[in-house]
Design a protein around this nucleic acid. Structure first.
Lengths: 218, 218
DNA sequence: CTTATTTTTTAGATTAGACTAAAAATAAAT
DNA sequence: ATTTATTTTTAGTCTAATCTAAAAAATAAG
Protein backbone atom coordinates (compact mmCIF):
# COMPACT_ATOMS: atom_id res chain seq x y z
CA UNK A 1 0.00 0.00 0.00
CA UNK A 2 1.55 3.27 -1.08
CA UNK A 3 1.49 6.55 0.77
CA UNK A 4 -0.77 8.08 -1.84
CA UNK A 5 -3.22 5.19 -1.74
CA UNK A 6 -3.43 5.52 2.02
CA UNK A 7 -4.15 9.22 1.77
CA UNK A 8 -6.96 8.63 -0.69
CA UNK A 9 -8.50 5.96 1.52
CA UNK A 10 -8.38 8.33 4.46
CA UNK A 11 -9.98 11.11 2.41
CA UNK A 12 -12.79 8.84 1.27
CA UNK A 13 -13.29 7.61 4.82
CA UNK A 14 -13.83 11.14 6.07
CA UNK A 15 -16.04 12.08 3.12
CA UNK A 16 -18.33 9.11 3.65
CA UNK A 17 -19.89 10.91 6.60
CA UNK A 18 -21.11 13.57 4.19
CA UNK A 19 -21.81 11.45 1.11
CA UNK A 20 -23.49 8.32 2.39
CA UNK A 21 -24.39 6.92 -1.03
CA UNK A 22 -21.01 7.10 -2.77
CA UNK A 23 -18.36 9.80 -2.61
CA UNK A 24 -18.17 11.77 -5.90
CA UNK A 25 -14.90 11.97 -7.79
CA UNK A 26 -14.89 15.74 -7.50
CA UNK A 27 -15.23 15.64 -3.73
CA UNK A 28 -12.26 13.29 -3.52
CA UNK A 29 -10.21 15.45 -5.84
CA UNK A 30 -10.99 18.54 -3.79
CA UNK A 31 -10.18 16.84 -0.49
CA UNK A 32 -6.90 15.60 -1.93
CA UNK A 33 -6.16 18.98 -3.44
CA UNK A 34 -5.70 17.50 -6.89
CA UNK A 35 -7.51 17.23 -10.22
CA UNK A 36 -10.56 15.11 -10.97
CA UNK A 37 -8.63 13.15 -13.59
CA UNK A 38 -6.01 12.19 -11.02
CA UNK A 39 -8.73 11.13 -8.64
CA UNK A 40 -10.31 8.98 -11.35
CA UNK A 41 -6.96 7.27 -11.90
CA UNK A 42 -6.53 6.52 -8.23
CA UNK A 43 -10.15 5.41 -7.86
CA UNK A 44 -9.50 2.82 -10.54
CA UNK A 45 -6.38 1.59 -8.83
CA UNK A 46 -8.08 1.31 -5.45
CA UNK A 47 -11.01 -0.39 -7.07
CA UNK A 48 -8.79 -3.00 -8.70
CA UNK A 49 -7.32 -3.74 -5.30
CA UNK A 50 -10.84 -4.09 -3.86
CA UNK A 51 -10.27 -1.31 -1.38
CA UNK A 52 -13.23 0.62 -2.74
CA UNK A 53 -16.37 -0.33 -4.67
CA UNK A 54 -16.74 1.76 -7.75
CA UNK A 55 -18.80 1.92 -10.94
CA UNK A 56 -18.07 4.79 -13.34
CA UNK A 57 -20.09 7.94 -12.51
CA UNK A 58 -21.42 6.30 -9.33
CA UNK A 59 -18.96 7.57 -6.74
CA UNK A 60 -16.76 5.52 -4.43
CA UNK A 61 -17.47 3.52 -1.31
CA UNK A 62 -14.88 1.89 0.89
CA UNK A 63 -15.00 -1.87 1.11
CA UNK A 64 -14.61 -3.58 4.48
CA UNK A 65 -10.92 -3.96 3.72
CA UNK A 66 -10.49 -0.37 2.56
CA UNK A 67 -12.28 0.98 5.58
CA UNK A 68 -10.20 -1.13 7.93
CA UNK A 69 -7.06 0.19 6.38
CA UNK A 70 -8.22 3.80 6.56
CA UNK A 71 -9.03 3.37 10.24
CA UNK A 72 -5.55 1.99 10.89
CA UNK A 73 -4.01 5.07 9.33
CA UNK A 74 -6.29 7.33 11.36
CA UNK A 75 -5.33 5.44 14.52
CA UNK A 76 -1.70 6.01 13.78
CA UNK A 77 -2.26 9.66 12.96
CA UNK A 78 -4.04 10.33 16.23
CA UNK A 79 -1.60 8.37 18.35
CA UNK A 80 1.29 10.31 16.85
CA UNK A 81 -0.53 13.60 17.49
CA UNK A 82 -0.95 12.57 21.10
CA UNK A 83 2.73 11.73 21.29
CA UNK A 84 3.75 15.08 19.88
CA UNK A 85 1.63 17.04 22.33
CA UNK A 86 2.03 14.89 25.44
CA UNK A 87 5.70 14.03 25.13
CA UNK A 88 7.36 16.52 22.80
CA UNK A 89 5.74 19.82 23.81
CA UNK A 90 4.06 20.47 20.48
CA UNK A 91 0.94 22.61 20.67
CA UNK A 92 -2.28 21.35 19.17
CA UNK A 93 -2.00 23.59 16.14
CA UNK A 94 1.46 22.25 15.21
CA UNK A 95 0.87 18.52 15.09
CA UNK A 96 -1.13 17.90 11.95
CA UNK A 97 1.57 18.17 9.27
CA UNK A 98 4.04 16.01 11.13
CA UNK A 99 1.40 13.40 11.95
CA UNK A 100 0.49 13.33 8.25
CA UNK A 101 3.96 11.96 7.66
CA UNK A 102 4.24 9.73 10.71
CA UNK A 103 0.92 8.01 10.02
CA UNK A 104 2.47 6.16 7.10
CA UNK A 105 5.25 4.44 9.04
CA UNK A 106 4.77 0.71 8.73
CA UNK A 107 5.34 -1.29 11.90
CA UNK A 108 2.75 -3.11 13.95
CA UNK A 109 5.05 -3.22 16.93
CA UNK A 110 5.77 0.49 16.77
CA UNK A 111 2.16 1.51 17.05
CA UNK A 112 1.40 -1.04 19.71
CA UNK A 113 4.30 0.13 21.83
CA UNK A 114 3.52 3.78 21.21
CA UNK A 115 -0.05 3.24 22.38
CA UNK A 116 1.26 1.58 25.54
CA UNK A 117 3.84 4.31 26.08
CA UNK A 118 1.13 6.96 25.89
CA UNK A 119 -1.06 5.08 28.37
CA UNK A 120 -3.69 4.01 25.84
CA UNK A 121 -5.19 7.46 25.22
CA UNK A 122 -8.84 7.59 24.18
CA UNK A 123 -8.72 10.83 22.24
CA UNK A 124 -6.18 12.91 20.35
CA UNK A 125 -5.24 16.52 21.20
CA UNK A 126 -8.26 17.82 19.28
CA UNK A 127 -10.70 15.57 21.10
CA UNK A 128 -11.11 13.12 18.24
CA UNK A 129 -11.41 9.46 19.28
CA UNK A 130 -8.45 7.15 18.69
CA UNK A 131 -9.57 3.88 17.08
CA UNK A 132 -8.57 0.85 19.16
CA UNK A 133 -6.38 -2.01 17.99
CA UNK A 134 -9.39 -3.72 16.41
CA UNK A 135 -10.42 -0.62 14.53
CA UNK A 136 -13.34 0.20 16.78
CA UNK A 137 -14.02 3.91 17.08
CA UNK A 138 -15.64 4.80 20.37
CA UNK A 139 -17.63 7.87 19.40
CA UNK A 140 -18.35 10.34 22.18
CA UNK A 141 -21.71 12.10 22.46
CA UNK A 142 -21.05 15.70 21.75
CA UNK A 143 -23.04 18.81 20.93
CA UNK A 144 -22.08 21.81 18.84
CA UNK A 145 -21.82 24.79 21.19
CA UNK A 146 -24.11 26.91 19.01
CA UNK A 147 -26.98 24.47 19.67
CA UNK A 148 -26.99 25.14 23.42
CA UNK A 149 -29.66 27.34 24.95
CA UNK A 150 -29.01 30.23 27.31
CA UNK A 151 -28.32 28.79 30.73
CA UNK A 152 -26.98 25.50 29.44
CA UNK A 153 -23.34 24.60 29.87
CA UNK A 154 -20.81 21.86 29.66
CA UNK A 155 -17.23 20.96 29.01
CA UNK A 156 -15.27 21.62 25.84
CA UNK A 157 -14.37 18.21 24.44
CA UNK A 158 -13.35 18.82 20.86
CA UNK A 159 -13.13 20.99 17.78
CA UNK A 160 -14.82 20.51 14.44
CA UNK A 161 -12.40 22.77 12.57
CA UNK A 162 -8.87 21.86 13.53
CA UNK A 163 -7.16 24.43 11.35
CA UNK A 164 -4.16 26.13 12.86
CA UNK A 165 -5.92 29.52 12.67
CA UNK A 166 -8.90 28.34 14.69
CA UNK A 167 -6.76 26.55 17.27
CA UNK A 168 -4.61 29.61 17.75
CA UNK A 169 -7.73 31.70 18.23
CA UNK A 170 -8.86 29.31 20.95
CA UNK A 171 -5.45 29.42 22.65
CA UNK A 172 -5.56 33.19 22.64
CA UNK A 173 -8.88 33.17 24.44
CA UNK A 174 -7.89 30.40 26.83
CA UNK A 175 -10.31 27.88 25.44
CA UNK A 176 -8.97 24.34 25.61
CA UNK A 177 -10.20 20.79 26.03
CA UNK A 178 -11.62 20.25 29.51
CA UNK A 179 -12.61 23.88 30.04
CA UNK A 180 -16.15 24.42 31.28
CA UNK A 181 -18.32 26.66 29.14
CA UNK A 182 -21.70 28.16 29.97
CA UNK A 183 -24.00 30.10 27.64
CA UNK A 184 -24.96 33.47 29.17
CA UNK A 185 -26.68 34.94 26.14
CA UNK A 186 -27.44 34.53 22.45
CA UNK A 187 -27.71 37.25 19.82
CA UNK A 188 -30.19 36.25 17.13
CA UNK A 189 -29.01 38.95 14.72
CA UNK A 190 -25.61 37.35 13.99
CA UNK A 191 -25.88 34.18 16.08
CA UNK A 192 -23.01 35.26 18.27
CA UNK A 193 -23.12 34.19 21.91
CA UNK A 194 -21.95 35.49 25.24
CA UNK A 195 -20.29 32.70 27.19
CA UNK A 196 -18.42 32.13 30.39
CA UNK A 197 -15.26 30.12 29.85
CA UNK A 198 -13.66 29.22 33.14
CA UNK A 199 -13.68 32.56 34.96
CA UNK A 200 -13.76 34.75 31.85
CA UNK A 201 -16.71 36.13 29.94
CA UNK A 202 -16.41 36.53 26.21
CA UNK A 203 -18.39 36.84 23.02
CA UNK A 204 -18.03 34.12 20.41
CA UNK A 205 -19.00 34.59 16.78
CA UNK A 206 -21.14 32.04 15.02
CA UNK A 207 -18.07 30.74 13.21
CA UNK A 208 -16.51 29.90 16.55
CA UNK A 209 -19.57 28.48 18.28
CA UNK A 210 -20.37 26.18 15.36
CA UNK A 211 -16.92 24.64 15.53
CA UNK A 212 -16.67 23.76 19.21
CA UNK A 213 -17.89 20.46 20.61
CA UNK A 214 -19.41 20.44 24.09
CA UNK A 215 -20.34 17.67 26.43
CA UNK A 216 -23.45 18.96 28.18
CA UNK A 217 -23.38 18.93 31.98
CA UNK A 218 -26.49 19.75 33.99
CA UNK B 1 14.69 15.98 -1.46
CA UNK B 2 13.06 12.63 -2.09
CA UNK B 3 13.30 9.55 0.09
CA UNK B 4 15.36 7.77 -2.53
CA UNK B 5 17.79 10.64 -2.91
CA UNK B 6 18.30 10.69 0.84
CA UNK B 7 19.00 6.99 0.89
CA UNK B 8 21.61 7.30 -1.84
CA UNK B 9 23.31 10.17 -0.02
CA UNK B 10 23.43 8.10 3.13
CA UNK B 11 24.87 5.13 1.25
CA UNK B 12 27.57 7.26 -0.34
CA UNK B 13 28.36 8.83 3.02
CA UNK B 14 29.01 5.43 4.57
CA UNK B 15 30.97 4.20 1.56
CA UNK B 16 33.29 7.20 1.59
CA UNK B 17 35.08 5.69 4.58
CA UNK B 18 36.10 2.79 2.36
CA UNK B 19 36.57 4.59 -0.97
CA UNK B 20 38.32 7.82 -0.13
CA UNK B 21 38.93 8.86 -3.73
CA UNK B 22 35.45 8.53 -5.18
CA UNK B 23 32.81 5.88 -4.53
CA UNK B 24 32.37 3.59 -7.58
CA UNK B 25 28.97 3.22 -9.18
CA UNK B 26 28.98 -0.50 -8.53
CA UNK B 27 29.63 -0.03 -4.82
CA UNK B 28 26.68 2.34 -4.59
CA UNK B 29 24.45 -0.02 -6.52
CA UNK B 30 25.41 -2.89 -4.25
CA UNK B 31 24.88 -0.88 -1.07
CA UNK B 32 21.47 0.24 -2.34
CA UNK B 33 20.61 -3.26 -3.46
CA UNK B 34 19.86 -2.13 -6.98
CA UNK B 35 21.38 -2.21 -10.47
CA UNK B 36 24.36 -0.20 -11.67
CA UNK B 37 22.22 1.50 -14.31
CA UNK B 38 19.83 2.74 -11.64
CA UNK B 39 22.74 4.01 -9.61
CA UNK B 40 24.10 5.87 -12.63
CA UNK B 41 20.74 7.55 -13.09
CA UNK B 42 20.58 8.67 -9.50
CA UNK B 43 24.19 9.78 -9.51
CA UNK B 44 23.35 12.09 -12.39
CA UNK B 45 20.37 13.51 -10.57
CA UNK B 46 22.31 14.11 -7.37
CA UNK B 47 25.11 15.62 -9.38
CA UNK B 48 22.77 18.08 -11.09
CA UNK B 49 21.58 19.17 -7.68
CA UNK B 50 25.19 19.63 -6.55
CA UNK B 51 24.82 17.12 -3.77
CA UNK B 52 27.67 15.03 -5.16
CA UNK B 53 30.63 15.77 -7.41
CA UNK B 54 30.79 13.38 -10.30
CA UNK B 55 32.58 12.87 -13.61
CA UNK B 56 31.67 9.78 -15.63
CA UNK B 57 33.77 6.73 -14.66
CA UNK B 58 35.33 8.67 -11.77
CA UNK B 59 33.10 7.67 -8.88
CA UNK B 60 31.07 9.95 -6.63
CA UNK B 61 32.01 12.26 -3.79
CA UNK B 62 29.60 14.13 -1.58
CA UNK B 63 29.75 17.91 -1.75
CA UNK B 64 29.60 19.93 1.45
CA UNK B 65 25.88 20.25 0.97
CA UNK B 66 25.36 16.58 0.20
CA UNK B 67 27.39 15.51 3.19
CA UNK B 68 25.51 17.87 5.49
CA UNK B 69 22.24 16.41 4.32
CA UNK B 70 23.44 12.83 4.77
CA UNK B 71 24.53 13.63 8.31
CA UNK B 72 21.12 15.08 9.10
CA UNK B 73 19.47 11.87 7.99
CA UNK B 74 21.92 9.81 10.04
CA UNK B 75 21.24 12.01 13.07
CA UNK B 76 17.52 11.37 12.69
CA UNK B 77 18.05 7.65 12.21
CA UNK B 78 20.10 7.32 15.37
CA UNK B 79 17.82 9.49 17.49
CA UNK B 80 14.84 7.43 16.43
CA UNK B 81 16.72 4.22 17.24
CA UNK B 82 17.43 5.61 20.69
CA UNK B 83 13.77 6.47 21.10
CA UNK B 84 12.64 3.01 20.12
CA UNK B 85 14.98 1.30 22.57
CA UNK B 86 14.84 3.75 25.48
CA UNK B 87 11.15 4.59 25.38
CA UNK B 88 9.31 1.89 23.47
CA UNK B 89 11.01 -1.30 24.66
CA UNK B 90 12.41 -2.29 21.29
CA UNK B 91 15.55 -4.42 21.45
CA UNK B 92 18.63 -3.33 19.55
CA UNK B 93 18.10 -5.87 16.79
CA UNK B 94 14.59 -4.61 16.03
CA UNK B 95 15.14 -0.92 15.48
CA UNK B 96 16.86 -0.64 12.14
CA UNK B 97 13.95 -1.16 9.74
CA UNK B 98 11.65 1.19 11.56
CA UNK B 99 14.33 3.86 11.89
CA UNK B 100 14.92 3.56 8.13
CA UNK B 101 11.40 4.87 7.70
CA UNK B 102 11.38 7.40 10.52
CA UNK B 103 14.63 9.02 9.39
CA UNK B 104 12.83 10.58 6.42
CA UNK B 105 10.22 12.49 8.41
CA UNK B 106 10.65 16.17 7.70
CA UNK B 107 10.33 18.48 10.68
CA UNK B 108 13.08 20.49 12.31
CA UNK B 109 11.03 20.91 15.45
CA UNK B 110 10.32 17.21 15.73
CA UNK B 111 13.94 16.20 15.79
CA UNK B 112 14.90 19.02 18.12
CA UNK B 113 12.20 18.08 20.58
CA UNK B 114 12.94 14.38 20.27
CA UNK B 115 16.58 15.03 21.07
CA UNK B 116 15.54 17.01 24.15
CA UNK B 117 13.04 14.35 25.19
CA UNK B 118 15.73 11.69 25.04
CA UNK B 119 18.11 13.79 27.12
CA UNK B 120 20.52 14.60 24.28
CA UNK B 121 21.97 11.10 23.89
CA UNK B 122 25.53 10.85 22.57
CA UNK B 123 25.25 7.41 20.98
CA UNK B 124 22.58 5.18 19.54
CA UNK B 125 21.74 1.67 20.83
CA UNK B 126 24.59 0.16 18.79
CA UNK B 127 27.17 2.56 20.17
CA UNK B 128 27.32 4.73 17.05
CA UNK B 129 27.68 8.46 17.70
CA UNK B 130 24.68 10.72 17.12
CA UNK B 131 25.65 13.81 15.11
CA UNK B 132 24.79 17.01 16.94
CA UNK B 133 22.51 19.78 15.67
CA UNK B 134 25.37 21.30 13.69
CA UNK B 135 26.27 18.02 12.06
CA UNK B 136 29.36 17.43 14.14
CA UNK B 137 30.07 13.76 14.75
CA UNK B 138 31.97 13.19 17.97
CA UNK B 139 33.90 10.05 17.15
CA UNK B 140 34.87 7.87 20.08
CA UNK B 141 38.26 6.14 20.24
CA UNK B 142 37.55 2.49 19.96
CA UNK B 143 39.48 -0.70 19.28
CA UNK B 144 38.37 -3.88 17.60
CA UNK B 145 38.34 -6.62 20.26
CA UNK B 146 40.45 -8.96 18.12
CA UNK B 147 43.34 -6.46 18.29
CA UNK B 148 43.66 -6.74 22.07
CA UNK B 149 46.47 -8.77 23.58
CA UNK B 150 46.04 -11.39 26.27
CA UNK B 151 45.64 -9.62 29.58
CA UNK B 152 44.16 -6.48 28.07
CA UNK B 153 40.56 -5.54 28.70
CA UNK B 154 38.00 -2.81 28.45
CA UNK B 155 34.38 -1.99 28.00
CA UNK B 156 32.17 -2.97 25.09
CA UNK B 157 31.12 0.28 23.44
CA UNK B 158 29.81 -0.69 20.04
CA UNK B 159 29.34 -3.16 17.22
CA UNK B 160 30.74 -3.03 13.71
CA UNK B 161 28.20 -5.46 12.30
CA UNK B 162 24.75 -4.45 13.47
CA UNK B 163 22.86 -7.22 11.72
CA UNK B 164 20.03 -8.75 13.63
CA UNK B 165 21.77 -12.13 13.65
CA UNK B 166 24.90 -10.78 15.29
CA UNK B 167 22.98 -8.71 17.83
CA UNK B 168 20.89 -11.71 18.80
CA UNK B 169 24.06 -13.77 19.23
CA UNK B 170 25.39 -11.09 21.59
CA UNK B 171 22.14 -11.02 23.57
CA UNK B 172 22.26 -14.78 23.93
CA UNK B 173 25.74 -14.59 25.43
CA UNK B 174 24.93 -11.58 27.59
CA UNK B 175 27.21 -9.20 25.76
CA UNK B 176 25.86 -5.68 25.67
CA UNK B 177 27.11 -2.11 25.62
CA UNK B 178 28.82 -1.21 28.89
CA UNK B 179 29.87 -4.77 29.72
CA UNK B 180 33.52 -5.20 30.71
CA UNK B 181 35.51 -7.63 28.63
CA UNK B 182 38.97 -9.07 29.32
CA UNK B 183 41.08 -11.23 27.02
CA UNK B 184 42.18 -14.42 28.80
CA UNK B 185 43.66 -16.20 25.82
CA UNK B 186 44.09 -16.17 22.04
CA UNK B 187 44.19 -19.15 19.70
CA UNK B 188 46.42 -18.43 16.72
CA UNK B 189 45.06 -21.37 14.72
CA UNK B 190 41.60 -19.87 14.10
CA UNK B 191 42.01 -16.49 15.82
CA UNK B 192 39.35 -17.33 18.37
CA UNK B 193 39.73 -15.90 21.84
CA UNK B 194 38.85 -16.83 25.37
CA UNK B 195 37.36 -13.84 27.16
CA UNK B 196 35.76 -12.95 30.43
CA UNK B 197 32.55 -11.01 29.95
CA UNK B 198 31.23 -9.76 33.26
CA UNK B 199 31.43 -12.89 35.40
CA UNK B 200 31.25 -15.41 32.55
CA UNK B 201 34.05 -16.97 30.54
CA UNK B 202 33.44 -17.77 26.92
CA UNK B 203 35.14 -18.40 23.61
CA UNK B 204 34.54 -15.98 20.77
CA UNK B 205 35.20 -16.80 17.15
CA UNK B 206 37.17 -14.46 14.94
CA UNK B 207 33.94 -13.36 13.28
CA UNK B 208 32.66 -12.17 16.63
CA UNK B 209 35.87 -10.57 17.93
CA UNK B 210 36.39 -8.59 14.73
CA UNK B 211 32.96 -7.02 15.04
CA UNK B 212 33.02 -5.79 18.62
CA UNK B 213 34.32 -2.35 19.57
CA UNK B 214 36.13 -1.99 22.87
CA UNK B 215 37.26 1.01 24.86
CA UNK B 216 40.49 -0.09 26.44
CA UNK B 217 40.74 0.33 30.21
CA UNK B 218 43.99 -0.32 32.04
C1' DC C 1 50.22 -3.79 -27.33
C1' DT C 2 46.44 -6.17 -28.52
C1' DT C 3 42.79 -9.14 -26.36
C1' DA C 4 39.76 -10.18 -22.62
C1' DT C 5 37.33 -8.79 -18.58
C1' DT C 6 35.19 -5.73 -15.66
C1' DT C 7 32.93 -1.45 -14.85
C1' DT C 8 30.10 2.08 -16.26
C1' DT C 9 27.03 4.32 -19.17
C1' DT C 10 23.32 4.66 -22.66
C1' DA C 11 18.99 3.33 -24.77
C1' DG C 12 14.53 1.96 -24.31
C1' DA C 13 10.53 0.15 -21.30
C1' DT C 14 7.80 0.16 -17.17
C1' DT C 15 5.13 1.84 -13.10
C1' DA C 16 2.88 5.17 -9.91
C1' DG C 17 1.20 9.42 -9.69
C1' DA C 18 0.05 13.73 -11.44
C1' DC C 19 -1.18 17.09 -15.20
C1' DT C 20 -3.89 19.37 -19.45
C1' DA C 21 -7.19 19.20 -22.79
C1' DA C 22 -10.88 17.09 -24.87
C1' DA C 23 -14.73 13.82 -25.06
C1' DA C 24 -18.65 11.60 -22.96
C1' DA C 25 -22.11 10.97 -19.53
C1' DT C 26 -25.26 12.92 -16.24
C1' DA C 27 -28.01 16.60 -14.34
C1' DA C 28 -30.29 21.11 -14.66
C1' DA C 29 -32.91 24.64 -17.01
C1' DT C 30 -35.42 26.78 -20.13
C1' DA D 1 -37.61 17.67 -24.64
C1' DT D 2 -33.94 19.94 -26.33
C1' DT D 3 -30.32 22.94 -24.93
C1' DT D 4 -26.97 24.21 -21.35
C1' DA D 5 -24.13 23.28 -17.63
C1' DT D 6 -21.74 20.26 -14.63
C1' DT D 7 -19.37 16.15 -13.56
C1' DT D 8 -16.66 12.42 -14.82
C1' DT D 9 -13.82 9.89 -17.74
C1' DT D 10 -10.44 9.18 -21.48
C1' DA D 11 -6.32 10.21 -24.08
C1' DG D 12 -1.91 11.68 -24.09
C1' DT D 13 2.21 13.82 -21.70
C1' DC D 14 5.49 14.29 -17.75
C1' DT D 15 8.66 13.03 -13.85
C1' DA D 16 11.02 9.98 -10.50
C1' DA D 17 12.65 5.73 -9.97
C1' DT D 18 13.36 1.45 -11.47
C1' DC D 19 14.62 -2.47 -14.84
C1' DT D 20 16.97 -5.24 -18.99
C1' DA D 21 19.95 -5.39 -22.68
C1' DA D 22 23.44 -3.50 -25.26
C1' DA D 23 27.25 -0.30 -26.12
C1' DA D 24 31.35 2.06 -24.60
C1' DA D 25 35.12 3.01 -21.59
C1' DA D 26 38.64 1.57 -18.36
C1' DT D 27 41.48 -2.07 -16.43
C1' DA D 28 43.87 -6.27 -16.40
C1' DA D 29 46.24 -10.20 -18.76
C1' DG D 30 48.60 -12.56 -22.10
Amino acid sequence: MTLSEENYLKAIFHLEKKYTKGVPTNAIAEEMDTKASSATDMIKRLSEKDLIAYKPYQGAKLTKEGSAHAVKVIRKHRLWESFLVDKLDFSWDEVHEVAEQLEHIKSEKLIKELDKFLGYPKTDPHGDPIPDENGKIHRIEKTILSKLEVGQGGVCIGVKDSSSAFLKYLDKHHISLGKSIKVLGKESFDNSMLVKVGEDELTLSSLVSTNLYIKIVK
